[in-house]
């Protein structure tokens, strides 16, 4: 393309790549905590656990009914305010300013992805043939044993492709963290663009980096999927 500063793009690719660690940290931490959260809420709703299942339903409704962008802003400005209130109310002495902003993002993205994984896991657990759990019962296993040893391993295998899609989505969604000044990939691009006024070049660099890490992640997930499906021929 005419007028595009290729040299600039090449020189600064690594500058922007510095944001990868933030992006991946947000994605990995959130998929882990979100996965646990999703599993607990899915089970709570499937077994209609009193209180917990109602809380889960409300939580999922709220997260799915509001934009991620809004959730990020609410968490970013809301948590410090909440901690201030706790400090005042209970005489605790938490140093709110010393909490790194990225922690808020872990919290926010975990809640966000957890609600989607909850729906996903619920579907996958329900799709495991009921005869599997009956077979567990028939040899004297408890529900908990049957779930952890037979049903969940099968449900997780069928959930894995969608889990992967959610993870890739998370990598891209993490770009929204730049709004609360997390220097992830897009954040780095913005800083560079602001400093040099080469907007298009900086954002193209960001696009290239996003593409590369998403592509690599997809390949890794594909291998994982293949391995986990070994028992299905």
């Amino acid at each position: 393309m005419r007028g595009l500063d290729w040299d600039f793009m090449l020189e600064n690719l690594l500058t922007i790549a510095k944001g990868i660690s933030y992006t991946m940290e947000i994605a990995v931490v959130s998929i882990i905590f979100g996965g646990v959260l999703g599993l607990v809420t899915a089970l709570a709703r499937m077994y209609r656990t009193p209180v917990l299942s109602q809380i889960s339903s409300v939580y999922i409704a709220i997260i799915r009914g509001t934009p991620l962008m809004v959730q990020i802003l609410v968490v970013y400005y809301g948590i410090p305010r909440f901690l201030q209130w706790v400090n005042a109310e209970y005489g605790t002495n938490m140093d709110i300013n010393s909490i790194p902003a990225i922690y808020f993002m872990y919290f926010c993205f975990s809640l966000y992805i957890g609600s989607y994984l909850s729906e996903l896991l619920r579907g996958c657990i329900a799709s495991v043939d009921s005869g599997q759990l009956e077979a567990c019962y028939s040899i004297g296993m408890t529900t908990a044993q049957g779930m952890t040893r037979v049903v969940l391993p099968q449900a997780l295998v069928s959930a894995l492709p969608n889990f992967g899609n959610n993870f890739i989505g998370l990598i891209k969604d993490a770009s929204l963290a730049f709004t609360v000044s997390i220097p992830e990939i897009l954040g780095q691009a913005k800083i560079l663009a602001g400093r040099t006024s080469k907007f298009l070049e900086a954002y193209l660099d960001a696009a290239i980096i996003y593409f590369i890490i998403c592509f690599i992640s997809q390949q890794i997930l594909r291998i994982l999927e293949k391995k986990s499906r070994r028992h299905e021929r």
């Binding site: 599997q132 019962y137 028939s138 044993q145 028992h231």
Partner: peptide, 29 residues
């Protein structure tokens, strides 16, 4: 239930386990 065992119409072998693991499951767990 520990005094009984059942053979199902649709076998209901544990799909995520080998035959050996299927048979061992009740013994170990």
């Amino acid at each position: 239930r520990k005094k009984t065992a059942m053979v199902f119409q649709n076998y209901n072998l544990f799909r995520n386990k080998t035959l050996l693991a299927n048979v061992m499951e009740g013994l170990t767990v």
